[in-house]
């Protein structure tokens, strides 16, 4: 049914995203579908990496670990953003285009009052992506 599953991942808070990763991996395993873990980074150094190359390596290592853990085929796809605080959704939409994924499995929070001012990342991706989006709470 699907050819590629994209799972957005925040490497710093990967533990909080286990349900989405598990769901995506489960679906991938059922249909033998390759998974892409997409993560957004900045050019500036962050707590995770000194530069984009290092970030890319860490993401690749994460994808490899998940591939072994869930018995799936997984790769990493890093997306560069000048201002990820604001442009996270745009960066993820770009990742969908670049990877050719046709299903996004994404963690999202339970709606709250702030969503009226700053909609959730998952909600915005679901609103703007032209592929199927599975939000996991």
């Amino acid at each position: 049914m699907f050819n590629k599953i994209l799972i957005p991942i925040d490497l710093k808070h990967a533990d909080n995203l286990e349900r989405a990763v598990f769901t995506g991996a489960y679906l991938a395993k059922q249909g033998d579908i390759p998974v892409v873990f997409a993560a957004v980074t900045t050019a500036a150094p962050s707590g995770l990496a000194h530069n984009p190359d290092e970030f890319r390596s860490k993401l690749a290592a994460y994808a490899e670990t998940q591939a072994g853990k869930h018995g799936i085929q997984a790769t990493g796809h890093a997306v560069f953003s000048h201002d990820p605080t604001i442009d996270l959704e745009d960066a993820l939409l770009r990742a969908i285009q670049e990877t050719g994924a046709d299903l996004v499995v994404m963690a999202t929070h339970i709606p709250n009052a702030t969503d009226h001012f700053w909609p959730s990342n998952g909600g915005r991706v679901a609103s703007h992506a032209d592929v199927s989006v599975f939000l996991v709470r």
Binding site: P52, D53, F55, L59, A60, G76, H77, A78, E98
Partner: peptide, 20 residues
């Protein structure tokens, strides 16, 4: 494993730099 460099959103390659 990761996608090859040309397929990533990061400008690539960054090349050598002397990280502290």
């Amino acid at each position: 494993m990761s996608d090859n460099a040309a397929n990533q959103g990061i400008p690539d390659p960054e090349g050598p730099a002397n990280v502290i």
